[in-house]
Design a binder for these strands. Structure first.
Length: 928
RNA sequence: GCGGAAGUGGUGAAAUGGCAGACACGCAAGUCUUAGGAACUUGUGCCUUCACGGGCGUGCGGGUUCAAGUCCCGCCUUCCGCACCA
C-alpha cells in the first residue's frame, strides 16, 4: 500500500502502476444508453412491491434548452428516485412535454417553422440533456400534450365538465393581451401584465369559455389541510380563493330597484350614509336620473378608458358621481344617496357596497372628498361625546361600544380585536381599563357581539341572509390562437351548443399554413372553413365548430394521470393504474405555478373524483419547490424614474460600453436575453455530469435560492477525484487478503453515515447528505494516508461509500462498481460501458443501480465512549471522556476530580447538577 | 394594507432546548513541481495573549430556563405572493 505515492495529476497517464485517473468524459460515456436499452428505469405495476410516484413539473420544451437552474429540479428528484429504487420501491419517474400553448407557437413563428416541427426538435434536445446528466426517466411513458391521442382525452374531460355545467360560454369583459392576441384568465393577468411578460393588458368584450372552478372553492380550500405542501403555496391558494363570510342585505332604491350589498361588518349597518355601485353594474342605467345622466355616462366612459394598470393602483384618489337616486336602509329606513364609483368591483359580491365612512377607510376617504356625512356607530372608549362622526380624523376600525344603533347600543363591536397580538391587546386593555379575558369573552358571545347580533337581526327581519363570498373567479380557458386543443363544441342553429360525442373525438387541429391571429379577436381556426363546417351531432343539420382552443393549463391539468396509463385507448386512464400508481407521492417544481397549474390540477382531480373515476381527490400528496438559481450579472442604474427597481440587469457586452463606475454586479435570474445562462452542456464538458449533480445537491438547502458558483462545482470535481483515487488505489493494491485487524471506529462511522444519508434523503436534505458522504470519504482518505487501509473494515466502508454515492453520482459509481467487480463479488471490469447495447456481463457484478441500499445497524452506529462537556454556570470549563451510558453519579465524580472544574466549584455539596446523558453536565454554583 | 418565508464567519451553510460555525468555497503558509488557475498538508468567527488561557459572539430589545441560533413577547430589515375583495 505504501508503495503507492499520492496521485499527483489528473488527466495525465504517467502515474505509476497505470492506475486510471478520474476522467469524467471517459467514465460517463455509454452508461446512460446501456441502462436505458436494458429498460432499467421502465416500470410496470407490481403489487408485491410498494410504489412511489416521483414527478417533476410538466415542462414546455423551450428552444433555449435546459440551464443548470433547471437541474436544481431534476437532479434531486432523480437522486431520490434512484435511492427509492435501491430501497425496494417500484418507482414511477416519467417525463413528457407540455407542448401546446402560446410559448411553443410564438417560438415556431419566430423560427418560421410549424410548431409541430419545433416542438419535436426542442423535446429531442431536452431529452438529450436529461440523458447527459444521467436522469433515470422511464421514457416508455413519454407524453406530448399536443398529440391527438392525448388531447382527445383532454377534450373528453372538457365534455364531461360541460355536461355537469362546469364549462360555459360567456360574453363578458375579458382580459385581452395585445401581445398574445388572445384572452387570458385572471391568474394569468398579473398586475395588469400578461404572465408571459407582455405589457399593457386591455379588456375586450368577446365570448369566451370558462370552467366553473368557483363551484369547487370550498373543496379546494378545505383540501389544502390534507396535503403536505409548502406553507407558502398553501397560503397563496388560500388567499387566492379568498373565502369570506358575511351577510347580504337587501337595500333597495326609492323606486324599488333592488340594491343588495355584501358586508362582513353588519355591526356598522346603522352607520350607512351612502351607497356605491360599480360602473359596469347592469342596474346602473335604471338608477340614473335624467338630470345626472350626462355626468354618470361621462364617468362610466372615463373609467372604462382608464388603463387597467391605473385601475389596479390602490393609492389612486377615489372618484365617483351621484346617480340622482336614493336608497332606503332596511334596518332603520334611512334615505341615502346612491353613487357610482370605480373603487367598487363589479365582479365581487353584488357589485354594490354600503358606505360606512366612520368605520371603513375607503368609505371615509370617499365621504370626505364629496362632503358626505359621517355617522358614528362604534364609539371609541376614549371618545369625547361632544364630538360627532364628522370630527373623526380617520375611519375608526378598533373595538368599541355600539351607539346610534337602536336595539343594539351598548353591545361590543370587536373591530380588528381578533387580529391583535397579545401585546397590543394588553396595551388597549391598560389604556381603557378592561381585562383582556373579558374582551375575548364579549367578542366570542352571540348576544354581546354586534356582528353576530345584527347579522341575526337582518336574517330575522327578512332583510337579508348569511352568505359566503370568494375572491376567486371562474377560470377563463378560451384562446383565440391556433396551437391548442380545439374546444370540442359544435354550434347548431337549432340545438345551440352541442358537445362533440365521445366517439367523434378527438377534434383534430386542422393543418394550416397561416395560423397567425389576424387582430380581429377571432381565432385563426375560423379561417379553416372546411374544418369549421360540420353537422350537428343531434339533428344532423349543418352546423359550425367552436374555433377557440383551450389554454395550455387545461392540457397540463391531468397529464400526471396519463403517465400511469400511456397509450390506453378506452379512456383517459385505466382504473387499475389509478389504484396502483396514484396519487403522486412527490411532486417537484418551481413556485411560480402556485395558483395556476397547481390549482387547476386540483380542480380537475376533485371533479374526476366526484365523477367516480378516481379513488382520491388530491393529486399531489407531497409538494416541494426547488430554490431558484441566480448568477452574478452586471446591472446599471435604472434610467426610467418610474421603474420599481433601482438597478436593472444588462449583458456583459452592454456593461463593457458603460465603464466600471456605472456598473455593479448583482445576482440575477438566468435568461437568454441577458446572456448569463449557464448550461449543463458546458458544465458536463468541463467537470462532468456527476460533479454537476453533486454540486447541485450540495450548494444550498434544496428550497433555497442560491448563486451559481463555478468554484463550487470545481470543489465537487476535486472531491470525486479524491474518492476515485482512493478506490482505484485500494483496488490496485488489494490482493484479497486483509490485515485481519478491526477498525471499529470506521465501522461505527460507516453505520452512522448510512443512517444519516438515508434520513437526509427522505427529508429532502440533500446538502447535508452530501456533507455526510464527504466526512465519511475524508475518514477513509485519512486511513489511506496513514497506511491503515488494509483492514476488511476499510474494504466494507469503501464499498458502502460507493453505493451511497450511486443515486447522486450514477456514472461515477457505476464505473467504480464495474472496476472493482462489485467489490470482489465478480470479475473486475473496465470503467467504461463498452458497447451500449450489450447487456451487463453474466460473470460481472451487474449494474450498481440494481443493488439494494446499504443497511445500517443502530447498535454498531452507537459510540462506545463519549465526550461530556462540563459547564459551570453555563460556561464550558472542561471536557471528560467516559464510556457511553455512564451514570450521572459517575460523571459527576469524574468531573469533580478535574482541577479545572474544582477551580470553579469550591463547594461541590452546595452546587446543583443537571445531567444530559452522554452529552453534558451542567453545574450551578451560587454566585459569591 | 393582508399573507408567507428568512436574518448565523469573507462566502454557501450546519446544529432532536444541551460544547455555535459540521461540510465546503475562498484565503494564508507550507510540500511536491521547469511551471501552476493542478494535487497534497496545516491553519482560518472576532478581540486579547509569546503561550496556556481569557473575553465576546447567531438582526435589535425583553422574557422563560441550570442551559436559547432554537421556545415566548415586542421591534427592525430583506425577499416572495396578493392587493380598493366591502
Amino acid at each position: 500500500m505504501t508503495a503507492l505515492a499520492p496521485s499527483r495529476d489528473h488527466g495525465r497517464p504517467e502515474r505509476e502502476g497505470d492506475l486510471p485517473a478520474y476522467d469524467p468524459a471517459v467514465v460517463e460515456a455509454g452508461w446512460q444508453a446501456r441502462w436505458q436499452r436494458q429498460g432499467m428505469y421502465d416500470v410496470i405495476e407490481d403489487p408485491t412491491r410498494p410504489k412511489y410516484y416521483c414527478l417533476d413539473f410538466f415542462p414546455y420544451p423551450s428552444g433555449d434548452g435546459l440551464s443548470v437552474g433547471h437541474c436544481r429540479n431534476y437532479v434531486p428528484t432523480d437522486t431520490l428516485s434512484r435511492f427509492l429504487r435501491a430501497r425496494g420501491y417500484n418507482v414511477l419517474h416519467p417525463m413528457g412535454w407540455d407542448a401546446f400553448g402560446e410559448p411553443a407557437e410564438q417560438y415556431a413563428v419566430s423560427q418560421g417553422v410549424h410548431p409541430r416541427v419545433t416542438t419535436d426538435r426542442n423535446a429531442a434536445n431536452y431529452r438529450r440533456q436529461y440523458d447527459l446528466i444521467g436522469i433515470s426517466f422511464d421514457w416508455s411513458r413519454e407524453l406530448d400534450s399536443s398529440d391527438p391521442d392525448y388531447y382527445r382525452w383532454t377534450q373528453w374531460i372538457f365534455t364531461r365538465l360541460y355536461r355537469k355545467g362546469l364549462a360555459y360560454r360567456d360574453a363578458n369583459w375579458q382580459w385581452w393581451c395585445p401581445g398574445c392576441q388572445t384572452t387570458l384568465s385572471n391568474q394569468e393577468a398579473q398586475d395588469g401584465v400578461c404572465w408571459r411578460g407582455h405589457t399593457g393588458l386591455t379588456k375586450r368584450q368577446i365570448p369566451a369559455w370558462y370552467f366553473r372552478i368557483t363551484a369547487y372553492a370550498d373543496k379546494l380550500l378545505d383540501g389544502l389541510e390534507t396535503i403536505d405542501w409548502p406553507d407558502r403555496i398553501r397560503a397563496m391558494q388560500s388567499n387566492w380563493i379568498g373565502r369570506s363570510t358575511g351577510v347580504q342585505v337587501e337595500f333597495a332604491s326609492e323606486s324599488g330597484i333592488p340594491l343588495p350589498i355584501f358586508t362582513t361588518h353588519p355591526d356598522t349597518l346603522f352607520g350607512v350614509t351612502f351607497m356605491v355601485i360599480a360602473p359596469e353594474h347592469p342596474s346602473l342605467p335604471d338608477l340614473v336620473t335624467d338630470d345626472h345622466k350626462a355626468e354618470v355616462e361621462a364617468y362610466v366612459e372615463a373609467s372604462r378608458k382608464a388603463s387597467e394598470i391605473d385601475r389596479l393602483a390602490t393609492d389612486r384618489p377615489k372618484t365617483g358621481v351621484f346617480t340622482g337616486s336614493y336608497a332606503i336602509n332596511p334596518l332603520n329606513g334611512d334615505r341615502v344617496q346612491v353613487w357610482v364609483a370605480d373603487y367598487v368591483l363589479a365582479t365581487y359580491g353584488t357589485g354594490i357596497v354600503m358606505g360606512v365612512p366612520a368605520h371603513d377607510k375607503r368609505d371615509f376617504v370617499f365621504a370626505r372628498t364629496y362632503g358626505i356625512p359621517i355617522k358614528l356607530v362604534v364609539r371609541p372608549l376614549d371618545w369625547d361625546d361632544s364630538k360627532t362622526g364628522n370630527d373623526l380624523p380617520d375611519a375608526y376600525t378598533a373595538p368599541g361600544i355600539m351607539v346610534n344603533s337602536p336595539g343594539f347600543d351598548g353591545m361590543m363591536s370587536p373591530g380588528d380585536w381578533p387580529k391583535l397580538g397579545p401585546n397590543e391587546k394588553a396595551e388597549l386593555s391598560t389604556r381603557w381599563g378592561f381585562a383582556v379575558a373579558d374582551m375575548d369573552a364579549r367578542v366570542g358571545s352571540a348576544t354581546d357581539n354586534a356582528i353576530t347580533a345584527i347579522g341575526d337581526a337582518v336574517v330575522a327581519r327578512n332583510a337579508g341572509k348569511r352568505v359566503t363570498n370568494y375572491r376567486m373567479r371562474d377560470w377563463l380557458i378560451s384562446r383565440q390562437r391556433y396551437w391548442g386543443a380545439p374546444i370540442p363544441i359544435i354550434h347548431c342553429d337549432a340545438c345551440g351548443e352541442v358537445p362533440v360525442p365521445e366517439d367523434q373525438l378527438p377534434v383534430e387541429l386542422p393543418a394550416m399554413v397561416d395560423f397567425m391571429p389576424d387582430g380581429t379577436g377571432r381565432s385563426p381556426l375560423a379561417r379553416a372553413e372546411d374544418w369549421v363546417r360540420t353537422t350537428c351531432p343531434t339533428c344532423l343539420a349543418p352546423a359550425r365548430r367552436e374555433t377557440d382552443t383551450m389554454g395550455g393549463f387545461a392540457c397540463s391539468s391531468w397529464y400526471f394521470l396519463r403517465f400511469a396509463s400511456p397509450g390506453y385507448k378506452e379512456g383517459p386512464f385505466r382504473p387499475g393504474d389509478m389504484d396502483y400508481w396514484l396519487p403522486v407521492d412527490q411532486y417537484v417544481g418551481g413556485a411560480e405555478h402556485a395558483v395556476l397549474h397547481l390549482l387547476y390540477s386540483r380542480f380537475w382531480t376533485h371533479f374526476l373524483h366526484d365523477e367516480g373515476m378516481l379513488p382520491f381527490a388530491e393529486p399531489f400528496t407531497r409538494l416541494r419547490n426547488q430554490g431558484m438559481l441566480v448568477v452574478k450579472t452586471p446591472h446599471r442604474r435604472a434610467s426610467d424614474e418610474n421603474a420599481t427597481e433601482d438597478w436593472v440587469p444588462i449583458t456583459a457586452a452592454e456593461a463593457a460600453t458603460l465603464g466600471p463606475e456605472a456598473v455593479t454586479m448583482r445576482a440575477a435570474k438566468m435568461s437568454k436575453s441577458l446572456r448569463n445562462v449557464v448550461t449543463p452542456d458546458e458544465m458536463v464538458a468541463r467537470y462532468g455530469a456527476d460533479s454537476l449533480r453533486l454540486y447541485e445537491l450540495f450548494m444550498a438547502p434544496f428550497d433555497q435560492e442560491v448563486e451559481w458558483s463555478e468554484e463550487g462545482i470545481n470543489g465537487a470535481r476535486r472531491f470525486l477525484g479524491r474518492v476515485w483515487d482512493l478506490v482505484v488505489r485500494w483496488h490496485a493494491a488489494h490482493d484479497g487478503a486483509t490485515s485481519g485487524e478491526p477498525d471499529t471506529a470506521l465501522v461505527r462511522l460507516q453505520h452512522k453515515t448510512i443512517a444519516r444519508v438515508t434520513r437526509d434523503m427522505e427529508r429532502f436534505r440533500f446538502n447535508t447528505m452530501v456533507a455526510a458522504l464527504m466526512e465519511f470519504a475524508n475518514a477513509l482518505g485519512e486511513r489511506m494516508r496513514t497506511g491503515n487501509a488494509r483492514t476488511g473494515d476499510f474494504a466494507a466502508a469503501t464499498e458502502a461509500l460507493v453505493r451511497l454515492l450511486a443515486p447522486t453520482t450514477p456514472f461515477f459509481s457505476e464505473a467504480l462498481w464495474q472496476l472493482t467487480g462489485g467489490f470482489g463479488r465478480a470479475r473486475s471490469g473496465g470503467i467504461t460501458a463498452g458497447d451500449p447495447s450489450a447487456p451487463f456481463a453474466t460473470d460481472g457484478p451487474g449494474s450498481i443501480h440494481a443493488q439494494a441500499w446499504p443497511e445500517w445497524d443502530e447498535a454498531l452506529a452507537r459510540d462506545e465512549t463519549v465526550t461530556i462537556a462540563v459547564q459551570v454556570n453555563g460556561k464550558v470549563r472542561d471536557r471528560i471522556e467516559v464510556a457511553a451510558g455512564t451514570s450521572e453519579d459517575d460523571v459527576r465524580a469524574a468531573a469533580l476530580e478535574r482541577p479545572r472544574v474544582r477551580e470553579f466549584v469550591p463547594d461541590p455539596e452546595a452546587a446543583r447538577y443537571h445531567h444530559v446523558a452522554d452529552r453534558l453536565l451542567s453545574i450551578v454554583v451560587a454566585k459569591a
